[in-house]
Design a protein around this nucleic acid. Structure first.
Lengths: 191, 191
DNA sequence: GAATCTTGAATGACCGTTTAAAAAACTGTT
DNA sequence: AACAGTTTTTTAAACGGTCATTCAAGATTC
């Protein structure tokens, strides 16, 4: 019982440290030693738990993907109409515990590096397809078929673009603002 | 005269090689030796011309920024109405010689690394501010003041998002398609 | 013959991973 | 409670490798 527990606790600590360290120094530049220092551990122990640097990065992205997925499920639970569900998809991306500079920063590093790592690019494809199908499902209920694809592209690219910009921000983000802006964009696209 | 000429020729060759090599291997991973091989030169000669790896990267981004700027000027030259100029801003980003996988790929790497390099982040700020002001100038002529900012954010984020997606593409891009889609998004935002 | 250009080899630094041994946590027994 | 034995966790140090940059000598151009 406690055998599993310790491993889980360490995993989460190390992943949190990874997010902070990658944000501070950049994905391509951050060293195992820096991540370890951030977590108050040693580089060797990270390898003990994750096998390699790439394993750590994959686990970190898996963790963030899970959070995003959970946020979206939460939103769907209370949404009743297609438009509300559309808001929910956007809101999930701008949730309070997701839309922070370090996390947007990681996400951007993830995007930039996905093409060069089969493991990362797999995660990227899966996530993207999931968001896409959510958008399509709701848009089909709100728009004539020939306008669905344009609207989907506009909204999905908008979301990506906001994160991209957020990653460059030097001040803390305002998730509530971001959600309000996203709703306005949805309203622009679906009058 | 030819003293300058040779330097310019080499610079351009090396920058083209940098674009290809970074696209192939990733910004954080590509080595000077790989770029040199791509250009048919030696790593030492790159340092001779650009001083350092960071200098090469800055020069490469400066080159791409120049191309983007030129494409936008070209478009503005023939556009006559605010809406046409809005199209022109979008079209510049999706111009035939800019909207290619390697170049979108570089751009994405550039975004991801800008926060960690003062020289790159300076370029990023300048470019972003320029695009922003173009958008605002045209949108103010087309929309009531209170809707301008939402529209600008929607369009600018859309553009960024499309590039982000394009960088992940495994097939060649279709710039004409991209321009048509962008026009549809503009029409969605400005009815 | 001087200035410019090129590069192979040397330099020095850095980093991910492994290893071996110690520390800590846990187990069952007394 | 205490203890000895076992497993799990931790890390310092060593290893092997890579890479940007420098340098000095040679090639090319003017």
């Amino acid at each position: 019982m406690s055998r599993k527990r310790i491993r889980d606790i360490r995993n989460e600590e190390l992943i949190e440290a990874t997010i902070v360290a990658v944000h501070k120094r950049g994905y391509g530049v951050v060293t195992m030693a820096e991540i370890a220092r951030e977590a108050g551990a040693s580089a060797a122990s990270i390898n003990y738990y994750f096998g390699s640097k790439e394993g750590l990065m994959e686990a970190t992205m898996l963790h963030l993907l899970g959070k995003l997925r959970a946020a979206m499920s939460d939103g769907y639970a209370t949404a009743r109409t297609p438009r509300e569900r559309l808001y929910a998809v956007m809101d999930a991306n701008f949730a309070d515990d997701l839309f922070t500079v370090p996390q947007c920063s990681i996400w951007m590093q993830f995007w930039a590096n996905a093409p060069y790592s089969p493991r990362l690019s797999r995660l990227h494809r899966i996530n993207r397809a999931r968001v896409r199908s959510h958008f399509l499902a709701e848009l089909r209920a709100l728009l004539p078929a020939e306008r669905v694809e344009t609207a989907r592209q506009a909204l999905q690219c908008y979301m990506d673009g906001v994160w991209l910009q957020a990653a460059q921000s030097e001040e803390a983000l305002d998730p509530e603002d971001a959600r309000a802006a996203a709703h306005r964009v949805v309203d622009l696209v679906i009058p």
